[in-house]
Amino acid sequence: MLYQVEDWDDAYANAAHIPGGNDYPARWEAEAAAFRKTARQENIDGGDLFLPENTAKGLAVFIHGGFWMKTGPAIWSHLAAGPVARGWAVLMPGYTLAPGARIAQMTRQVASVISDAAGRIAGPVALTGHSAGGHLAARMICDDGTLPGGVAARISACVPISPLADLRAMMRTAMNDVLAIDMAEARSESPALLTPCPDIPVTTWVGGAERPEFLRQARLLADIWAGLGAATDCVIDPGRHHYDVIEALTRPNSPLTCRLLG
C-alpha cells in the first residue's frame, strides 16, 4: 500500500487520536507533583536533578517534548522514578521554548545542562527523551562536538522515544509558523541527516498505536544510523500510543528502563 501524507498537521496531531487525550496533561502534573514530594532533588541551573539514596551509579537524562513549544521539566518529574529506583541520578534539562529560541539554540542549551550535571555525577551517562525531546536526545550524540568529548565518551546508551528525527517534515506543518525552521536549520539540526558518534548503542522506541509519522521517523533514524555504522534497534511497543509509551520509565524493571540503563 502506498503511504502518502495528505494533511501534515493531522499527521502530527496526537490528542485527537488518543481516547481521553486531553486529560493526560493534568494526570502528568499530578503524578509529577506527587513524585517530587518524596524525591531527593538537587538544584541545578537549567534543569531538575533527582538523586538516589546512595551514590549514583550514573546519570540518566530525560529531555521533555512538546514540539519544542510547550511544557517543561516539572511536568515529567515522575518519569525519573524508574531510574532513581535503580540507583541512578536523573537529570531533566529545560530549554527555552519557541518562539523564544530556535531549535539550534535549544540544542546548545540542553548540551550545556547535561555537561554541568555530568560534572557533578560520576559514571556512565544514559540519554533519552520523548518526541521533540527524542530529537534532542539523538541530537546530543551527533558527531559534531555538541557535547564535550569527555561527556560524549561516557554515554552508555541513547534511547530516543517517538523521536522527530527529520525536521524537514515539520516545515510542512502549521507549527512552523512558530518554530520557523528553514532548510538550513533542518539540515544542521536533523539527527537523521547527521552522523552519530561512534560506539554508542541507539534504540529508537515508539508506540505501536502511534501516528504513522512517528513510526516512520523512529524507523528512519534507526535505519539511517545503522547504515553509518551505529549499533541500532527500533522497538515498536505494542498497543502504546504517544502519551502512554513513556509511562514505562516510572518502573525500574520495565523493558524501556532496562534498555536505557543496561
Rank of each mutant, 00 (worst) to 15 (best):
G208E: 11
Q217K: 01
M106F: 06
V113K: 02
A153D: 09
L256E: 03
G119R: 05
I200E: 00
R27T: 14
R251C: 00
A122C: 05
R86A: 14
P83A: 10
R36L: 08
L193V: 00
G262I: 05
M92R: 03
G150Q: 14
G239S: 03
T96W: 09
K37Y: 00
P83G: 05
G208I: 04
S190A: 04
N22K: 10
H130Y: 10
F50I: 06
M140G: 09
A248D: 14
P238F: 02
P196A: 09
V61G: 05
P163S: 07
G208N: 11
W225R: 01
D223A: 14
Q217L: 04
R219A: 10
S162H: 02
P198C: 07
E6G: 12
W205R: 04
F62R: 01
T38A: 15
R219G: 14
G58Y: 02
A16I: 07
L59V: 02
L49I: 09
T146D: 09
H78L: 00
L249I: 00
A11S: 12
T203R: 02
A222C: 03
G47E: 04
F35I: 01
T204Y: 10
G119K: 06
P196V: 06
A209Y: 00
A174F: 00
K70L: 12
G46A: 09
W68F: 11
L228Q: 15
E53S: 14
M106E: 11
M69Q: 15
R251A: 12
S77G: 08
V90L: 04
R36G: 03
D45W: 01
P25N: 06
S190K: 00
G227F: 08
G149N: 14
M140A: 05
F35A: 04
A39S: 10
M140R: 10
S131W: 06
R36P: 00
M140I: 13
K37A: 14
A101N: 12
S188T: 10
A132V: 02
A81Y: 03
R251T: 07
K57W: 01
A137D: 00
A60N: 03
W88T: 02
M106W: 06
C234A: 12
A26I: 11
M1I: 10
A226K: 14
Y24F: 15
L147N: 04
P201M: 06
D244E: 07
M92F: 07
